[in-house]
Amino acid sequence: MKQAFMSHEGLIFTLMFTLIFIVTNLIMIDYRGLQSLITNMDPFTILTMGAILTYLYKNSKITFSRNKNLFLIVWGLYILSIFASMLVENHFAWTEAIIWILLSVMFLYKIPLELIMYITAGALISLPSLLMADITLNESGSTLVLVFAAGLIFMPKTNRAMMWYVLPSLALLVIITTSRTAMLVYLLVTVAQFAYINIYRTNKKQRKNFLIAMGIFMLAPLILFSRQLYSYFIQGSFGGAGVDLDRLTSGRWDPWQTVIANSRWFGQGHDYVDFTHLLHVHNIVFDTLGRYGILTMVLFIALLCLTVLISIFSTRSFNITLFLIAFILTGMFEYNYLFMFVYFSPVVLFFVITGFIINQKDFRS
């Protein structure tokens, strides 16, 4: 790993991804009104894909396998449905089409593990730029959590290393966001990683000590701060009239219902939601449904499920699967898929890690 980073190529690509992610983070948090100068993130995505394809052209080759062929078939149908939607509903965007084509070319290559290392390192180094936001943002918290989860792929599987990794990232998370989704997914990822370290292939004594320590760690806050935690996560959504789902989901329920009620086979186009009030509907599935339609949504869900299944049964990497689960869970409440002012580095990581998954029969660190 050290040799890969210290190479001339490794330093150049890590620096390149770091700079791109810092700039896109600053746009995401609207630092000094940067968003007013940028129409969308497509140019940055094309630039990043260009760097990735340059690396792959030099260091990899096009390969095929059973899992990869299956993925490419579903991916091809997914892309065709997106193009059909854009043509039928008259919202075709050339920059978006170029990105889908570049992603398709990327999936043909065998993704080297070193490329994921460079992108992950760049994403981690760029995280402090989120501190420059004037206000706390859900997007900042979710970006941190997903980059944090990707970083676990390369972390030493020891409790000491995890503590040095968790404590500063938790402090940064508390500072930059109050997002319930980010907090819960971060907690889930952290607990899952500690459980993996202390339960999988360990002796009985270590497993027992871990379960006791984790029980104390989980129960103590619930007992000491039960009222505050209830107020923070439930936010008064339970009452005599029942459950206020819109309040429980922080205003997401009504937009979700609107998207479902207005769903079409080929979607409603890029302006399916009133963007003066919402950047997106805070859900990758409903965003796909509203923008591209029922056919694309079904294929999108199939792609997510297929990617997770290949990760579980082919790569056999706990941390890669954990990242995918974190990505999907975040996407149910916070995450817009690709073409907005949010979540740039996690999206790049998702596609590159997906490309790595479909090319591997067994994950080797």
Rank of each mutant, 00 (worst) to 15 (best):
M1H: 11
A4S: 13
S7N: 14
H8M: 13
G10A: 10
L11H: 07
I20C: 10
F21A: 11
I22W: 00
N25V: 06
D30T: 11
D30S: 09
R32M: 13
Q35P: 03
I38W: 05
T39D: 08
N40Y: 10
D42G: 07
F44E: 03
F44T: 02
F44H: 04
T48G: 11
G50Y: 01
L53Y: 10
Y55L: 13
Y55N: 07
Y55W: 14
N59H: 15
I62D: 00
S65K: 10
R66M: 12
L70R: 14
F71E: 06
W75R: 02
G76Q: 09
S81D: 03
S85P: 08
S85N: 07
S85V: 11
A93T: 09
T95W: 05
T95R: 13
T95G: 14
I98K: 02
W100P: 02
I101F: 14
L103H: 06
S104G: 15
V105C: 07
V105A: 12
M106P: 03
F107V: 03
L108E: 04
I111E: 01
L113M: 09
L115P: 05
I116F: 09
M117N: 10
A123F: 04
L131M: 11
A133P: 05
L137P: 00
E139D: 13
S140F: 09
G141C: 10
L146R: 04
A149N: 02
A149I: 11
A150P: 12
G151P: 03
G151D: 00
P156M: 07
P156R: 12
K157Y: 01
N159Q: 12
M163K: 13
V166R: 01
P168Y: 03
L172H: 08
V174H: 01
T178M: 10
T178K: 14
R180A: 05
T181E: 01
L187A: 15
Q193V: 12
F194N: 04
F194H: 08
I197T: 03
K205G: 00
Q206N: 13
F210A: 04
G215H: 08
L219S: 13
P221S: 01
P221A: 03
R227H: 12
Q235S: 13
G236T: 10
S237I: 08
V243D: 00
D244H: 04
L245T: 03
T249W: 01
S250A: 12
S250V: 14
I260S: 10
N262K: 15
N262T: 09
G267D: 01
H270D: 09
Y272P: 03
D274Y: 09
F275Q: 12
L279H: 11
L279S: 13
V281D: 05
V281F: 05
V281T: 14
H282I: 00
N283A: 06
V285H: 02
D287G: 09
L289P: 04
G290M: 08
I294P: 09
L295Y: 11
T296M: 06
L299N: 02
L304P: 06
T307N: 11
I310D: 05
S314D: 12
T315Y: 04
T315I: 10
R316L: 10
S317V: 05
F318T: 02
L324S: 01
A326W: 02
A326T: 07
F327K: 06
L329Q: 02
T330W: 04
G331P: 05
G331A: 05
M332K: 03
Y335A: 02
F339V: 08
M340N: 14
F341T: 02
V348Q: 00
V348T: 06
V352S: 02
V352H: 01
V352F: 07
I358T: 06
R364V: 15
